[in-house]
């Protein structure tokens, strides 16, 4: 049985998303995320003439594409997972559950916020690079469109998996371990560099992760064609990357609602209270 979502709920979710973004990015804590972006910009500037040996491609291009790819992953997976975990403890999810269509609206607001959460922290680096380092940016309109497609598809792909992590791990410490594992996978999956020179088993392992395909897709849009030589098979395989990401998105969108519903079902005043008492007693 399907239940239509009233337009008033969509409006409330949109309003919730707008307020969330405004409150977040007008606060000192929210603005602090752009510092990383500025640091990356400085690094890019100093490495603007450095080249990577194999493909004779500028190092700044690899750093910038890795930064963008990981920005998407970080916001859509780690950010959402951390928020869901915190919201279970502070009662946000319970508050949403207590109003009609509240949980649907809350998750809809999260989906609306996610692309901005991915984009805003990277914005200084993107704008700065467009002005000072045009070589690392798309060269034409098609490139910009493709970058936007890859960006949005990356968010859509990774967002459900962030929800899965946030649903499965109930404590901050559990989630911290999951995040460490995520960083390890990111480091080994070719988000930041091509893995074409790796042994075949490692190449296959890297390709099992959606992170690899986000990295490939971003590189294929931002790097010059000759950089493809360092990739697996000597080519970027952008179409395949988009299809694989789409597949991961479909699987995530099938799995995440089941786990989110289970998590929502378990929310009650006593579970929120128990979580708070655990934090007070153990510190996490």
């Amino acid at each position: 049985m399907t239940t239509a979502i009233p337009t008033a709920v969509v409006r409330s979710a949109a309003r919730q998303a707008r307020i969330t973004l405004v409150r977040k990015y007008t606060s000192p804590a929210g603005l602090s995320v752009v510092v990383v972006s500025l640091v990356v910009l400085v690094v890019l500037w100093f490495l603007r003439d450095a080249e990577l040996g194999v493909a004779q491609v500028g190092a700044s291009g690899y750093i910038f594409s890795g930064f963008l790819a990981f920005g998407v992953i970080s916001a859509a997976v780690l950010g959402v997972a951390g928020e869901l975990q915190a919201e279970r403890e502070d009662g946000t999810l319970l508050r949403a559950k207590a109003v009609p269509h509240g949980m649907t609206g809350h998750l809809l607001a999260k989906i609306l916020v996610a692309p901005f959460d991915a984009l805003i922290p990277m914005l200084p680096a993107i704008v700065g690079a467009a002005i000072f380092l045009p070589d690392v940016m798309p060269r034409d309109l098609l490139g910009w469109v493709l970058l936007l497609v890859v960006f949005l598809l990356g968010v859509v792909t990774m967002l459900p998996w962030g929800a899965v992590l946030g649903s499965v791990f109930r404590t901050m410490i559990g989630l911290a371990w999951a995040m460490m594992a995520m960083y390890a996978v990111a480091a080994l999956s070719g988000v930041f560099y091509p893995v074409g020179g790796w042994p075949a088993p490692l190449q296959w392992a890297a390709q099992c992760s959606p992170l690899y395909w986000i990295g490939v897709a971003v590189r294929s849009v931002l790097l010059p064609p000759e950089a493809a030589a360092a990739e697996i098979g000597g080519e970027f395989r952008l179409v395949l990357a988009l299809l694989v990401l789409l597949g991961w998105a479909v699987v995530g969108l099938l799995v995440a609602p089941v786990l989110l519903r289970r998590m929502a079902r378990r929310q009650s005043g006593s579970t929120v209270q128990a979580a708070r008492e655990r934090v007070l007693a153990k510190g996490y």
Partner: peptide, 15 residues
């Protein structure tokens, strides 16, 4: 749900 209101003790959200 629209006919029911709930006020719990445990909320500390949306600070």
């Amino acid at each position: 749900r629209s006919r029911v209101g709930v006020v719990l003790q445990s909320w500390r959200d949306h600070g």
